[in-house]
Design a protein around this nucleic acid. Structure first.
Lengths: 338, 338
DNA sequence: ACTGGCACTCGAGCAGTATGAGTGCCAAAT
DNA sequence: ATTTGGCACTCATACTGCTCGAGTGCCAGT
């Protein structure tokens, strides 16, 4: 691909992102110093259209990039806007104020949506990648227990366990101790096998209670709410302009289906591994007019989870990528300290 | 106010809610069996307009209700649609599946938005109205503690406490025990005074650590995130039709400002105390084109918190009120059992 | 390979007009 | 005193025909 044609594509994307209007050959040479005349640009644009990178909404209008055009643009993007020093400072001070994990997640989502002016998506640290910090059992009266699992990331899962008959404080203390001996410091995915045979340390008449507790732990770890997502900045969707019910409605619906969002995040790869999905590249049908920028966060060699933003295909990719990267890095750091 | 004029207002509201279009005198007599001619209706409508209950968007159009009109309609509403038996059943089974408080709140918000086809708002049980069930301190290494406050509603607050030097397990055990003796079963608002003088039971060299923990508890109870709100069903805003950026954008923004939402909920009165705020009756500026239906939930004589829905002033008040009531009642019950 | 020029296309915007829903008012009927 | 039918009037909406101009594609000239 010749250098100039690429430059033209870049210029088209830049202008279109800014103005939201099809851009013509004349406007291009005016706004960018391309060093050639509009006729030359027209030839290039003609070629770009032929190859499917841009398209004209109607005969006498300018061109707009296709999904394929954005894809090329992003792939050849040579300048991811890095955050400025004050911006980085702002990120740090804002996130440092967080008092707990919920707060970190909520602040992150606010921050991201404000920085990018897009919808922000933040996934809680995956339980599967976290370690058990502590297991707590609290007697909550009338033969019920409150089971609390605490992860090293600060994430907490709770369950009510109904034992149907009351138990002694001693037993509870014993069970709690044994659970913590078995589980503390273990990866959550290891929990099931660490619990095998735990019941054998107890009197036969205590076994049912122990098994109920274990079943609940397994349920919490394996089945339910393994993953959580926070969404924010949906008001940014109001700026899209286009017709509303057709475009934004389905997107809002999709955003409420957290299952869908998790599929969107896909496999969390290494931290810093950045993914951009443009338009139809999204498997989620409702989001095929949107683009999604995601990146893993976490401190180790494997990401704890994923955060990202979602916006119209016509978005400022360079800026968004920079912002998502910067925020993800710092969130990773913060969670390490907690 | 004569009976018929009220009937006319009712008919106008009904039709307008259904069609979203100004309703004229002719259409009214056609669709409702009012037993009089359109000319008579015209006179009544004229009077209603004079009194400010309805208004004509332009000369040759039908009338639409004003906020004042909706207010009268709601006040004179004699048939709050009760939920049908299958609907109640659905509410129960859906909420019964919840595994913890987060789950209850999330399910409630989904349920409400689906039942009413509006935006749903659910406030977590207020800490100020809850009792302390348990306080837990977990050593999380490198001289940091994890502080966990558990309320009887299942609500959990967590904080990291940095002590700057490590502490013994014995001390931790002692502190934990004393905290629970002092706090368990107490109303959260009582917590500050229950903690007075707690430090005196400890060695002077342990006092700083104790005070740090106490300060953190106070911070958690008093200052931070005392209240939490969940929002859902925002995609229902897409159906409003009207121009988008002007109306829905600001609403979405307001919904993200949880502080604003809490102001919206206002004082939670007794459970079942239902409030309807129509249009300009909302103090929140961005929401002056919306109506909000809220009701307290909880089991005692004072509500734990508030839930509600938000939608265009042109909404199905009878149905919404019924749904919000029904859901609030059941949520109150569920939390009692937890 | 690039450029200037030119004919052509077609959407946006505007003015003018027809349509009809809806109103307000009045005189007649109940 | 209230209701009703009739009638003139208003005005938003939809449609038509029109112009304007941005933008294109192509070609001949540099």
């Amino acid at each position: 691909m010749e250098e100039r044609k690429l430059a033209v594509l870049r210029a088209i994307v830049d202008d279109y992102v800014q103005t939201h209007e099809p851009v013509g050959s004349k406007a291009l040479v005016d706004r960018h110093s391309l060093g050639v005349s509009s006729a030359t640009i027209r030839n290039d644009m003609s070629a770009l259209e032929e190859e499917g990178y841009i398209t004209a909404p109607h005969t006498s209008a300018g061109r707009i990039p296709t999904d394929k055009g954005y894809r090329l643009f992003v792939d050849k993007l040579n300048s991811v806007k890095p955050m400025s020093a004050p911006e980085r400072k702002a990120i740090h001070t804002f996130l440092d104020q967080a008092v707990d994990l919920d707060d970190v997640m909520n602040r992150t989502v606010r921050l991201l949506s404000q920085l990018t002016k897009q919808v922000a998506l933040v996934q809680y640290p995956s339980l599967g990648r976290s370690f058990v910090r502590h297991v707590e059992l609290v007697n909550s009266g009338n033969s019920k227990l409150l089971l609390i699992l605490i992860a090293d990331t600060g994430r907490i899962e709770q369950r009510t366990v109904d034992l149907f008959h009351s138990v002694s404080e001693d037993f509870l203390h014993d069970l709690r101790t044994r659970l913590n001996v078995a589980l503390d410091g273990q990866l959550f995915t290891e929990v099931p096998e660490r619990l095998i045979g735990l019941g054998e340390n107890f009197q036969p008449d205590q076994r049912p209670a122990v098994n109920t507790v274990i079943a609940t732990i397994l349920d919490a770890v394996v089945t339910h709410s393994e993953e959580r997502v926070v969404v924010g900045g949906t008001s940014n969707l109001a700026r899209v302009g286009e017709d509303f019910t057709a475009t934004v409605g389905p997107v809002l619906e999709a955003l409420e289906e957290h299952v869908v969002l998790l599929r969107l995040f896909g496999e969390a790869a290494a931290p810093d591994a950045l993914t951009v999905r443009i338009g139809h590249e999204n498997s989620v049908e409702e989001l095929q007019r949107a683009s999604v920028v995601t990146v893993g966060y976490g401190s180790g060699d494997q990401a704890l989870a994923t955060i990202g933003i979602l916006g119209p295909t016509r978005m400022d990719y360079a800026g968004s990528i920079g912002a998502v990267r910067a925020v993800a890095r710092y969130v990773g750091q913060i969670l390490q300290d907690k």
